[in-house]
Design a protein around this nucleic acid. Structure first.
Lengths: 126, 126
DNA sequence: CTGGGTTCTTTGAAGTTGTCAACGATTTAT
DNA sequence: ATAAATCGTTGACAACTTCAAAGAACCCAG
């Protein structure tokens, strides 16, 4: 189990660096819904980290033109995050890459893959 | 899958902070064999990070008296890492805690757990 | 045995992540 | 209208990470 987790982490970081993104930046991009702008605090909650941390992460994503801040209509304190066109392109290639079955699992028999999927569903409660 | 990884990471960090250790410190302690001193470079390889990185991590473990550096007999350049008595105590409690089945998996039926174990073995080539 | 190249660890600089406390702007409740 | 709560930012600090460069020790000619 530990082994698998470590391998997955390595894979994740390798894919992240393919796009010259740090792991938290990938997580942020992943969380951002292309159709639905999301406030900073919501992203912080999804990432389970402090609000002030998200400030820096978004700063760097914005510097690369992948994300945009915009003041919300209903409350000028909150900043809504939207993905730019470039961000969308990166995001889609990134998620495609991440959704590929990881190498150790890809070699499994189809029946094993199905069994694994079903067990996972039961474990996570759906 | 992603969900499970994220949950596992949270669990790992929670257990690490129970012992007031950072994740890399836990990884280092885990890698260290209580019976067999290991050189810094070997630890760096196991952790898949730069040698210079290990210096700092071991510094902090040594400050807490969990680990000791000792010059190797055959080559005074290499520093062998040994676990102190306190380190051994922490390490054993830590691994015990980490080896407990994670919550989402503990609730599975015994047959599912076995099937999962078998599939994992096949995936990792045993 | 002496010198040059190699290897192991450390140091320093730089960048990212992470937390906490404090602040400014804004909103909400009294 | 004033006070309290909320959102994002900033600043301080600690840890991790990598890279380049240095120091110490080793090894191998010559």
């Amino acid at each position: 189990m530990f082994e698998l987790l470590h391998a997955s982490k390595q894979r994740f970081m390798a894919i992240a660096s393919e796009f010259e993104l740090s792991p938290p930046q990938v997580m942020a991009l992943r969380q951002l819904d292309p159709d639905e702008p999301k406030p900073m605090s919501e992203l912080a909650a999804a990432l389970r980290c402090d609000n002030s941390n998200v400030t820096g992460i978004v700063d760097r994503l914005e510097d690369r033109g992948l994300v945009e801040r915009r003041a919300a209509d209903h409350d000028r304190r909150v900043k809504m995050l939207t993905i730019t066109e470039r961000g969308l392109d990166v995001r889609s290639r990134l998620t495609a890459r991440l959704d590929e079955p990881p190498e150790p699992l890809a070699g499994l028999a189809v029946e094993d893959q199905r069994a694994l999927r079903d067990i996972m569903r039961r474990a996570l409660g759906r």
